[in-house]
Amino acid sequence: MEITVNLEKEELLFRKIILETAKSAYHKEICVYTDFLNINEISIFHSMEKELPLLAYSMYGGYEGAERVRICFHGDRTKEHGTIVLQTKEKNEYPIECLRIYPTSEKFARELDHRDYLGAILNVGIERSKLGDILVRGKEAYCYCDALLSEYVKTSLGKVRHNIVRVEVIKPEEVQATTSFKEVTGSVASFRLDSLIALAFRTSRSSITGLIAGEKVFVNARLITSNSYILKPDDIVSVRGFGKFKVKEQGGISKKGRIYATLSIYQ
């Protein structure tokens, strides 16, 4: 019960912060940015769009396809209300920089994981909301963060687990942030949410029911709690504890009346 109450308080506080941020942009007619938001926070934001002032907004996390993103509320009222396509100029204006974290001696360094880098950065006093995605590449990592804190992390972070490291601050566009996929194909009775999740992660539809009811499934960063929700090509589905996939295409129908589907699983 106590955990539920705390979660409700956190959500109410988050909603208040989003509303105040949007109002600030609207009244001052300037761009105002949120911290980095996780997928649950993005879903809450989408659910409150009707409560917000009529102004445009965009999302960006330092690279295309980033999971943690910052929202920019555009105070320019000449822009069309709702999401806008990010132009290169607007991407560069986001207060986001990238930290390249690499060992001083690659020969003796160990390969580390996402949790190692995140823990080390949090230990120097940085809040999670000030950090975006962390991409691990071999023995080094790229962490997207609030531009105001990049120099502090650079001078404060000297060790990640057993590795002595250096930190270099670079512009997000200097990083070749690419996402790899594994294709999965198969046939399903319909393009229902539970059917395609079962296909993507090679599990049964009955085991998916609890995940959806447990609010662990998001479609295009919106929380979905209906098993029968119908997916369409280009939808992106995130399942906490399992991963993320994109609906690539809907194929023909088999002799038994089943629909062929192709999914791209994020690696």
Results as ranks from 00 to 15, higher is better:
1 M>K: 11
2 E>R: 05
2 E>C: 01
5 V>P: 01
8 E>C: 05
11 E>G: 10
17 I>E: 06
18 I>C: 13
19 L>K: 06
19 L>Y: 02
21 T>R: 12
21 T>L: 10
21 T>E: 01
25 A>K: 10
26 Y>G: 02
27 H>S: 09
28 K>F: 01
29 E>I: 07
30 I>Y: 07
33 Y>Q: 12
39 I>F: 14
40 N>L: 05
40 N>F: 06
46 H>E: 08
48 M>W: 01
49 E>S: 08
49 E>F: 08
50 K>N: 09
50 K>A: 09
52 L>I: 10
53 P>V: 14
58 S>A: 15
61 G>F: 14
63 Y>W: 12
64 E>G: 11
65 G>M: 14
68 R>S: 08
70 R>N: 09
71 I>C: 06
71 I>P: 03
81 H>C: 03
82 G>N: 00
84 I>F: 03
89 K>V: 13
90 E>S: 03
93 E>Q: 15
94 Y>W: 02
95 P>G: 02
96 I>Y: 06
97 E>G: 07
104 T>P: 04
105 S>L: 15
106 E>A: 10
108 F>D: 08
108 F>K: 07
109 A>H: 05
110 R>D: 10
111 E>F: 06
111 E>V: 11
114 H>T: 04
115 R>P: 00
117 Y>W: 09
117 Y>I: 11
119 G>Y: 01
123 N>L: 02
124 V>D: 13
125 G>V: 03
126 I>E: 06
129 S>Y: 05
129 S>C: 11
130 K>E: 15
134 I>T: 12
136 V>N: 10
138 G>H: 07
138 G>D: 07
139 K>L: 06
141 A>Y: 12
142 Y>V: 06
143 C>W: 02
147 A>E: 14
147 A>C: 10
149 L>M: 12
152 Y>R: 14
152 Y>A: 09
152 Y>L: 11
157 L>N: 03
161 R>F: 04
163 N>V: 08
164 I>Y: 13
165 V>N: 04
165 V>E: 04
167 V>Y: 02
168 E>F: 05
169 V>G: 07
170 I>N: 13
173 E>S: 13
174 E>S: 11
177 A>Y: 03
177 A>N: 01
179 T>I: 15
182 K>D: 02
183 E>F: 12
183 E>V: 13
184 V>F: 01
186 G>P: 00
186 G>L: 00
186 G>M: 00
187 S>Q: 15
192 R>H: 04
193 L>E: 01
195 S>M: 09
196 L>G: 05
197 I>T: 01
197 I>M: 01
197 I>C: 05
197 I>N: 00
199 L>T: 04
201 F>Q: 13
202 R>M: 08
203 T>P: 04
207 S>A: 14
208 I>E: 03
212 I>C: 10
216 K>S: 15
217 V>Q: 05
217 V>K: 01
217 V>N: 02
217 V>M: 07
218 F>M: 12
219 V>G: 07
221 A>T: 11
222 R>W: 00
224 I>D: 03
227 N>K: 09
231 L>W: 06
233 P>T: 10
233 P>F: 02
233 P>V: 04
236 I>F: 09
240 R>Y: 08
241 G>V: 11
244 K>I: 08
247 V>I: 14
249 E>N: 14
250 Q>A: 11
261 A>L: 15
264 S>K: 07
267 Q>G: 03
267 Q>T: 06
267 Q>F: 00
